[in-house]
């Protein structure tokens, strides 16, 4: 027998219960929305407040071209942003080849046994080690043992150690996402393991690897405590020697040995001054640092989008 109305098909109890189930669903959705709003709003408020406080200094070009100074209205971030750029370059040059190579080895070559399991767990653990510990390690190894000094080189290597676990883990995840059938297709025509990796696995996963690496670098650029530990200067009024020279051999490596400061240390320095005008400088430096980080993350997203075009499994 056909029911007269569709809703007649269910009993009142079932209908009531359905109403309650849907209410619960709605309730969770609202809760989730509130949670994400709280997170986003806090971040937005922080950035806007900082940008507005720092605006008087940000709007002057001298802020970017002047060295630190005792007079707040003349102090700038030249040494800091150049230092950050140089340190981050060293970090990338050291961390990317080592991290990617380690990731490839662990994912593609290493036998799966208790030892590789142990290494895997420890690499993940390393990502959680407080950065000041890395600073102490670097002070002992790079500064005192290797005699690198309190230099750009030491700082770059320290931050490289710090982000190495991130690079290794993202490399492995990206490699793992390449379907086995693509590897088998390459093996089936007589490729060696290295050819499979070099011609296929690595090119197809490079988007993910680069994304992870840039996210790691953007963490490194805001890193403070480990660099203070190795003895970064907080007040510096000169630039490292330029890597590019006007006369042969045109490149110089002197900058690697140069003392340095970086953006977050400069900011830290200004925040700790009692003079309120330095707080404006700190806010301005913070805004620049945030912008650098956001730009790097934006670039990572763009890269991932570009490199994944035309690859679908």
């Amino acid at each position: 027998m056909l029911a007269a109305k569709f809703s007649d098909l269910i009993t009142p109890q079932l209908g009531h219960q359905l109403h309650q189930r849907k209410l619960l669903n709605l309730g969770f959705m609202v809760m989730g929305l509130v949670a994400i709003m709280v997170a986003l709003f806090t971040l937005a408020a922080l950035i806007i407040h900082m940008a507005m406080s720092g605006w008087p200094r940000l709007s002057t070009w001298e802020f970017f071209t002047a060295f630190a100074s005792r007079r707040p209205e003349r102090a700038g971030i030249l040494a800091a942003w150049v230092g950050s750029l140089l340190v981050i370059s060293v970090t990338a040059i050291v961390a990317v080849p080592i991290g990617v190579a380690a990731g490839i080895y662990l994912e593609e070559y290493a036998r799966k046994n208790w030892l590789s399991e142990l290494i895997e767990i420890n690499v993940t653990n390393l990502a959680g080690v407080p950065s000041i510990i890395y600073g102490l390690l670097a002070l002992g190894v790079f500064v005192y043992e290797f005699k690198f000094g309190r230099s750009v080189l030491t700082a770059g290597c320290t931050l490289a150690l710090l982000i190495l676990p991130i690079v290794i883990v993202t490399t492995r995840e990206s490699l793992r996402s390449i379907p086995q059938m693509i590897r088998e297709a390459a093996y089936a025509v007589g490729a060696t393991q290295w050819q499979v990796i070099w011609h296929h696995v690595l090119p197809y996963s490079i988007g993910g690897i680069l994304t992870g690496t840039i996210i790691g670098l953007s963490r490194a650029i805001g890193e403070t405590s480990s660099l203070i530990t190795i003895g970064a200067l907080t007040f510096i009024a000169f630039l490292p020697e330029s890597p590019f020279q006007g006369k042969p051999p045109f490149v110089s490596w002197e900058w690697l040995n140069s003392p340095f400061t970086v953006m977050p240390i400069q900011m830290f320095n200004w925040v700790s001054r009692p003079n309120p005008e330095f707080q404006v400088n700190a806010a301005a430096a913070g805004t620049v640092l945030m912008t650098m980080t956001l730009l790097m993350n934006g670039f990572a997203i763009y890269l991932r989008y570009r490199l994944r075009q035309g690859i679908k499994w």
Binding site: M181, A185, A188, G190
Partner: peptide
């Protein structure tokens, strides 16, 4: 095995061209 695979080809269940 690489020599074997150079003389014996294989076609798989799902088309799996390289990108």
């Amino acid at each position: 095995p690489i020599e074997v695979r150079m003389r014996i080809g294989m076609v798989f269940q799902k088309p799996n061209p390289f990108p």
